[in-house]
Amino acid sequence: MKKLVMDLPEINDYRMVEGLNQLKTNLAFCGKDIKVITMTSSVPNEGKSSVSLSLSRTLAESGKKILMVDADLRKSVMAARYHIQGIDKGLSHYLTGQAEVEDIIYETEVEGLCITVAGPLTPDPTSILDSEQFEQFIENVRDMFDYVIIDAPPLGVVIDAVIIGKYTDGAVIVIEQGVIKRKIVQDVIKQLKRGEVRILGAVLNKVDERIGAYGNYEYKYSYSYYGESDTEKNHPNT
């Protein structure tokens, strides 16, 4: 397996560490059958990709074998954002028959953490995601890893997260505090339920906490669980 080079952000704020550990623990309590997880949000720039990568790293550092998949085949910024080098093939290569599964999985400097990047942008992402090839990819990596974290596009923009979610074990919604209106989150939940995607929970991201006498802010992740019976009545405070 090839190894890539990337700039992995440090996770050194204890509030962030605690939030990620809480998210990791709550996912474990969702059940042993929950291995392949779709991460989505309502709109771009809520921190979904950062949460996906940080969660993947946290799980790997706890001794799990993890694959993070960048499944944004429309506007992926992961390779550029983290200065990834050493990539030959990505997910779009596999889905269009130009690569095998083992060709698109790369090791990182973090033991146990592997990454699959999106690859070249495609003209019809929905069709190649809603395909036998993508279903087969999920089945293959399910057997290879303890968890597969799939970073899907924002659901308030395109439908891809629902397409991806139907092949996975459930979805987690990343919500930026104080930015996303409740109605938009409700619409995202309805779309996931309409597509029969199990909602595992939500991550309230970029939570401001005033500290000290000068009104500084810290940021953390807050995780909440949604059961099937309460997705309609319980919503994040935004």
Rank of each mutant, 00 (worst) to 15 (best):
L91C: 09
K89G: 01
V101S: 08
V117M: 05
T96H: 07
E111H: 12
L95N: 03
T96D: 06
Q98A: 15
I104Y: 09
Y94D: 04
G112H: 07
H93R: 13
E111A: 14
K89W: 00
V117F: 03
E102H: 13
V117C: 04
G90C: 00
L95G: 03
H93S: 15
K89V: 01
I105P: 07
S92M: 03
T108I: 07
C114Y: 14
Q98C: 05
G119W: 09
G97A: 08
E109N: 14
A99C: 01
I115V: 15
Y94S: 04
G97T: 03
T108M: 13
Q98K: 15
S92V: 01
A99M: 01
S92A: 13
V117L: 03
V101H: 05
P120H: 06
K89S: 05
T96S: 12
E109T: 14
K89A: 05
S92C: 04
I104K: 07
G112K: 08
Y94P: 00
V110I: 15
A118L: 04
I115L: 15
V101E: 11
L95T: 06
I104M: 10
T96N: 15
T108P: 13
Y106L: 01
G119Q: 12
A99V: 00
E102A: 14
A118N: 11
G90W: 00
H93Q: 12
